[in-house]
Design a protein around this nucleic acid. Structure first.
Lengths: 121, 121
DNA sequence: CGGCATCCAGCCGGATACTG
DNA sequence: CAGTATCCGGCTGGATGCCG
């Protein structure tokens, strides 16, 4: 305790920072949640479901999740192209924790918002 | 399902995005974890414990957490100044979920790293 | 349909220096 | 000791346009 926390030092070695660096962006969690609710979703479906995301950013988000082994990208060699996204087993195993976090957020959101507006920095 | 997800629309109304917008930054989770392990920590202790954080960024992080009602900032009117940070009840209630997330990250980090290096974008 | 290329603005975090 | 002030570079995310 209270000594230099080596375990938090190198971001590549730090699970928290590693995981948060991945999910801390604007859309990753929403994508995972939607995939967990729908099993298989096409690119443009995600585009429509998620409000205000550009296709460039969405594809970047999906790529990152795919690179981590959380999401599967399945391409059908047809015209017009068809691409389906789904969660891997590892991705699915993460869902319960995200859901719990979401529930906590839901339960405490009002309190947090109230604190924020009362706060005088 | 597969309809415009209003629940994710407005960030102020969306618990996930609200919570992640707050913890998705570089240091918040580490600060919360350290506070959860130590009960009361002074500013400079945090500075020393956390690697590579500047005092400006740290104070910003703490302010945000304080504004949300997750962290208490207690100032002692002495010279030199003494300020103690600790978790509120709400902050403490969040810790288990973060810990779970951390454990998931720890358990899956190797797999994630392996996927990343195998991934050819 | 499912992207990528390009360009661009804003924010986040870091370095340094200074203060009550 | 516990910050704030200033400056700055880089990255993230968004807009637009193009392509197989």
């Amino acid at each position: 305790m209270l000594q230099k926390a080596e375990k938090y030092s190198v971001i590549e070695m730090c699970p928290i920072r590693n995981v948060v660096a991945r999910f801390g962006n604007k859309w990753s969690l929403i994508v995972i949640l939607i995939l967990s609710e729908n099993e298989v979703v096409r690119f443009n479906e995600l585009c429509r479901i998620i409000p205000d995301v550009s296709s460039k950013v969405l594809s970047g988000t999906l790529k990152a999740l795919e690179a981590d082994g959380l999401v599967i990208r399945k391409v059908y060699p047809v015209v017009p192209p068809k691409v389906e996204y789904s969660l891997t087993e590892m991705g699915t195993s993460l869902v319960p924790f995200i859901v719990q976090l979401t529930e906590w957020a839901q339960a405490n959101m009002n309190s947090i918002l109230k604190h924020r507006e009362q706060y005088t920095g």
